[in-house]
Simulated scan of single mutants.
Amino acid sequence: MNRDALQSALSQVGSISARAALAELEAGANFQVFLNQTASARQLWDTWSWRHQVMLGTGVTPRPGLAEAIARLEAAGAARVHMATVTGSQRRFTIFLSEDLTQCVAGW
Rank of each mutant, 00 (worst) to 15 (best):
G28Q: 06
A79I: 06
L73T: 01
M83F: 11
I16H: 08
A5D: 10
F96A: 12
T85L: 08
S11L: 02
A76M: 04
V105Q: 00
A9S: 09
A84N: 02
R63N: 12
T47Q: 14
V13C: 09
V60G: 07
S40V: 05
W48N: 10
T94Y: 11
A76T: 08
G57D: 11
R91T: 13
G107W: 04
H82D: 03
V33G: 13
R72T: 02
L10V: 12
Q32I: 10
C104I: 05
A18H: 03
W50Y: 15
A69M: 10
R19T: 14
R42G: 11
L97T: 01
L22W: 01
W108D: 05
G57T: 08
T61Y: 05
D100T: 10
E74F: 11
A106S: 09
G28E: 11
T102W: 03
M83A: 07
Q90H: 07
V13Q: 07
I70G: 04
R80P: 05
F34C: 00
L44Q: 10
F93N: 03
F34W: 11
A106H: 00
S89W: 06
L10K: 04
G65R: 03
Q7L: 09
V60F: 15
G107R: 06
A5K: 15
N36T: 13
V33K: 00
L25W: 00
A21E: 08
S89C: 03
M1P: 11
C104V: 05
T102H: 02
N30K: 14
F34M: 07
A75W: 11
S89Y: 12
V105T: 09
L22G: 06
F93K: 01
V86E: 02
M55F: 10
I95L: 06
D46G: 07
G14N: 06
A39W: 14
L10M: 02
Q32R: 15
L25D: 12
N2G: 12
F34N: 13
